[in-house]
């Protein structure tokens, strides 16, 4: 059987979802999962090679703010604003990434350098308060009738669902392209041992730079999409440590090494937050975060492969058993 059939059925089923007559609330949850699923996938594209960035909020912030500022101040359509923001993020990734990889800044050091990058962007947004509204955030200027293809604004949630679905599928497609490329082997080798990888002809700096710029560009697109959907952005929600750590943790909870892991992470974290919010209400501030933080600690200690990774391990083990040699010959484990 063609392996693509389940995927096609899955996509068709997803595309049919808005026709089921879901309420706005459920549609909102779905769109949120798709947008964040895309952002998390963008992070995991580089994160899976041991390049743990704690500064993806920087790219998310550039995506959200550059596009919104160009639109609000100059009326420049997001169709041009998004490429501009993506280009800016890629230059930023290049400027910070090149010396990092050239001088072999890895592990803790890399994580902390990227963390500083995220803070630079957050504080710049706050500092430019005359243009960005500072910590109060800014609202995307809405078009009069709520829907405009030029402004990338859709009053109808259903339309936005399809936009988000397309972008999310694009993210999964990029993940798969990377997964099947030579780049993947080069990066996997580099993450094990840079010297050994370089000795067999891998240009470690260039390989790492390529994946970092790709990840930055995707994250920027995700940030722009988030701004277009929420129509309100704030330095804390799109930039800074909080969001950067949230990206990392959702991916780890979902599973870092599988295609759907980041999306499962987005579903998991959103469901957790919503369940707690619905059952305990708005009044108890911090309850979701407390449970979330506790779960993350437990995940990293006991389930470092995440939900999808552990499930996959469980499934392959279950499948291997029926095919095991007859009793007596089975190796004792």
């Amino acid at each position: 059987m063609d392996k693509r059939i389940p995927a096609v059925i899955g996509i068709a089923a997803l595309a049919a979802v808005p026709q089921l007559g879901l309420g706005n609330y459920h549609l909102h949850l779905l769109i949120t999962v798709l947008i964040w699923g895309f952002v998390y996938t963008s992070w995991s594209v580089m994160g899976r090679f041991g390049m743990v960035s704690l500064g993806h909020g920087a790219f998310l912030g550039v995506g959200a703010y550059v596009v919104t500022m160009l639109w609000n101040s100059y009326g420049l359509t997001p169709w041009l604003g998004i490429p501009a923001a993506v280009a800016m993020s890629m230059v930023m990734a290049l400027l910070v990434g090149y010396p990092c990889f050239r001088f072999r800044i890895v592990g803790h050091y890399f994580a902390l350098v990227t963390l500083a990058l995220g803070e630079v962007v957050r504080l710049t947004i706050v500092g430019l308060r005359d243009q960005t509204g500072g910590s109060l955030g800014m609202t995307v200027t809405a078009v009069p009738d709520g829907t405009s293809l030029l402004a990338l604004q859709f009053g109808e949630r259903t339309v936005f669902f399809y936009v988000a679905l397309l972008v999310w599928l694009f993210g999964l497609w990029v993940w798969r392209v990377v997964d099947r490329s030579m780049l993947r082997y080069a990066l996997e080798a580099s993450s094990e041992d840079e010297d050994a990888a370089a000795s067999v002809g891998v240009n470690v700096t260039r390989a790492k730079l390529a994946i970092t710029m790709l990840s930055a560009a995707m994250t920027t697109l995700g940030g722009a999409l988030y701004a277009q959907y929420q129509m309100y952005i704030n330095p804390e929600t799109v930039s800074g440590i909080g969001i950067s750590l949230q990206i990392v943790f959702a991916v780890i909870a979902g599973g870092l090494f599988t295609q759907l892991g980041p999306t499962v992470g987005a579903m998991f974290t959103l469901l957790l937050a919503e369940t707690l919010r619905v059952s305990f209400g708005h009044d108890i501030h911090g309850l979701d975060g407390t449970v979330y933080g506790l779960l993350l600690v437990l995940f990293i200690i006991y389930m470092p492969k995440g939900i999808t990774g552990s499930l996959a391990a469980l499934l392959t083990r279950g499948r291997a058993e029926p095919g095991a040699p007859a009793a007596g010959l089975a190796p004792s484990r």
């Binding site: 041991g50 743990v52 704690l54 592990g107 803790h108 994580a111 750590l245 990392v248 943790f249 780890i252 108890i284 501030h285 911090g286 309850l287 979701d288 975060g289 407390t290 979330y292 933080g293 506790l294 993350l296 600690v297 995940f299 990293i300 200690i301 470092p304």
Partner: peptide, 20 residues
């Protein structure tokens, strides 16, 4: 990196617990 991230989880936990 797991060691770094696990204390990041504690960061979330402490911050939210203080809010609570």
């Amino acid at each position: 990196i797991n060691q770094l991230l696990v204390t990041g989880g504690v960061l979330f936990f402490l911050q939210a617990a203080a809010t609570l």
